[in-house]
Design a protein around this nucleic acid. Structure first.
Lengths: 208, 208
DNA sequence: CATGACTTGGACTACATAGTCCATTTCGTG
DNA sequence: CACGAAATGGACTATGTAGTCCAAGTCATG
């Protein structure tokens, strides 16, 4: 078994890394489904099958675990969105992206919302560090949208004077608001409608 | 002192009603600022200056109190929005409505989000009854927006074929998403941008 | 003004949960 | 193989929180 240097200089065996990963994935799943507040450390222990001392060995406390979960979801979502948006350069591609998000959410009747959005609204009042991390993740996500819009602009599908930053912000807002309405209504329809309106607006700019 | 009949047939003196109201307003304030999860009943007792037995006399438990808070905020928000939107019949009026919401939120650097939205994302996983109440409140709010859009339609500012229901959903999504982004970024700018995009889209429909 | 129901105060209990501690096991390294 | 550091197991403590209980006070009503 090899050992690797962790960022803070502590040694960490692959076994330890595996344990840490098991804790984070179990915690992430629970916090996504039940919410951060009603996920207890005992829940995490039971779900991951590790002992309490392992958890406290790897994390200073619940806040540290929550921050690790934020990073975990952040990496996952950004990766997913990078794959989904990285090479999109047409309105049709953007609509396929919309379809994928909506259909993925429809599987659960919109019950759980966006992983990052749910974390954000639950955590940002309470943990300044986590709030900032989430804020940067949203910015990164939005940056991917900016990339798409720029490519649209390059291909002439969007006029050069359009403010891609503002459009990306609006699209992000529609997406997150849609998730939230869907979660409350237990129905994906408002999410679809909300994103559609943003996309329709972006598309309408080309013909004006 | 007069007594009134409460809905469930129990007698309730005006003194009792006053106590109940004090509990709800204190709980609402705390839950808005700190979140539902991290507001304890002891917090509510301390803030409202009532005793524990009073709280349990008026409410079956924390869930019941949360539901009362939902109703409280619901009545407040719907009242505010009815005043703000009830007679709006122009795009300019809609923009003034936007300005009021944004400016009101700017006072707190967007720290707390929408009262109903924050409650919704925290409660809807946990309490089905509260979730439904919030869902209906959103529908009512959206109904007010539908009213405005219909008046816009009547005055010719919006074409008859426009789907006011979908536009209202999109506007609601942009609003809620904007609140959320603002809350996470501690900056109202994304909220303003998000709503602006929705309004721009609505306005653009008239000239197409 | 007497009565009983409504209202109030606050101590008390039961329990869940965060966090601590130390003995034991596993594993990399010389 | 021997040693020490990392990793692990699980019991234990402290504390915060929801919820209970009963005695005392207040008020509408006859």
């Amino acid at each position: 078994m090899t050992t690797t240097e962790s960022p803070n200089g502590r040694r960490l065996t692959t076994r330890g890394a595996k344990t840490r990963a098991r804790i984070v994935t179990a915690a992430a799943e629970l916090m996504y489904v039940k919410g951060v507040g009603s996920t207890t450390l005992d829940d995490v222990i039971a779900a991951s099958g590790v002992s309490k001392s392992q958890l406290y060995h790897h994390f200073a406390g619940k806040d540290a675990l929550v921050r690790a979960v934020v990073e975990h979801f952040g990496a996952h979502v950004i990766q997913r969105e990078r794959d989904a948006l990285g090479h999109v350069s047409t309105m049709a591609g953007l609509r396929r992206w919309r379809d994928a998000l909506v259909q993925n959410n429809a599987l659960r009747h919109g019950a759980y919302g966006c992983a990052l959005g749910s974390l954000a609204s639950e955590v940002s009042d309470h943990d300044e560090i986590a709030r900032r991390a989430l804020s940067e993740l949203f910015a990164e996500w939005q940056g991917l949208l900016v990339g798409v819009l720029r490519r649209l602009q390059d291909s002439g599908a969007l006029p050069p004077e359009a403010s891609v930053d503002q459009l990306a912000t609006g699209l992000m807002g529609a997406l997150q608001g849609g998730y939230m309405l869907a979660q409350t209504a237990r129905d994906v329809a408002p999410m679809a409608t909300s994103i559609d309106m943003a996309l329709a607006h972006i598309e309408s700019l080309s013909s004006s």
